[in-house]
Amino acid sequence: METLSQILSPDFLLRNSIYTSVLVGLACPLVGVFLVVRRLVFMGVALPQISSTGVAIALSLPMWFGFKLAEHSSHSAHTLAFIGSVTFSLSAILLLAFLERRGRGQPEGRLGTAYVVASALSILLLAKNPYGEIGWLDMMKGEVITISNSDLVLTAATLALVVAILGLFHKELLLVSFDRETAIIMRKKVVLWDVVLYVLIGLTVSMAVLSVGPLIAFGFLLIPALTAHLFARTMHQFTIMASLIGGVVALLGFLIAYTWDLPVGPTDVVLLGALYAVAWSVAAIIISRRTTAAG
């Protein structure tokens, strides 16, 4: 309890890291729910990695074109990284969604290839980049230590945007996802709503990758939603439960990582995985008991 009150104190040195982790934990599952119901789980895995490749490429641009970013100014590097992350996330999700809609080729193969190539490319690019030394490689590994105020504000703003758009347009996004044909017959602008959803997912992923790295991003995109789906009865419950699981695990993960001096990202993801395993077992027991009682 003492550690908990210590890390929640406004004077805590790593307060931005914990606030950002919790915000990412709350925000990612909100869009992750749509990745799960649209059966785009593989996209949830590939997208953060592609986004981090965008960061790596953006940070390599000064080196390739022979100009230097202002010394001791991480702001320029952050801006470049943000542009790279958003550009790659949005381009990738729109392209992959378009190819998915066309139904040609093997979607799993495409996403798997995109994931593995993006992972390798990020490491290669950052290994040869001077900015790799100032924390970006740590970020790729999920070390949430150096979170600036601007990153915190960006994360909070993205969460607010995600909540606002999902709240306002939930019925449109749900109808287009659940029954596309009926949405077209009702003259809903299905392509527009797809784009809104994909842009929202892309922005959330970019924000998460930039703040806490791809490892935590894909952990929080998918695992809270998969866990919540085992127990929720309605879509509202599903969304709220997934977001709360993400937020609480982010807080617990940070507490554990701080107490035992572990990297936050891997701790969060392992904790999410353990929670999912326990939840899955409990759900299986409940179903088995219900079946026995009914039979």
Binding site: R39, K171, F178, D179, E181, T182, K188, M235
Partner: peptide, 26 residues
């Protein structure tokens, strides 16, 4: 429109009322 009921993905956590309510969305 009444589509074939087997085409809907059971992953959606929707009640019968939720599905019927979609009729008014237009």
């Amino acid at each position: 429109y009444v589509p074939q009921s087997i085409q809907f993905d059971p992953i959606y956590l929707l009640t019968g009322f939720d599905v019927a309510l979609m009729g008014v969305y237009g």
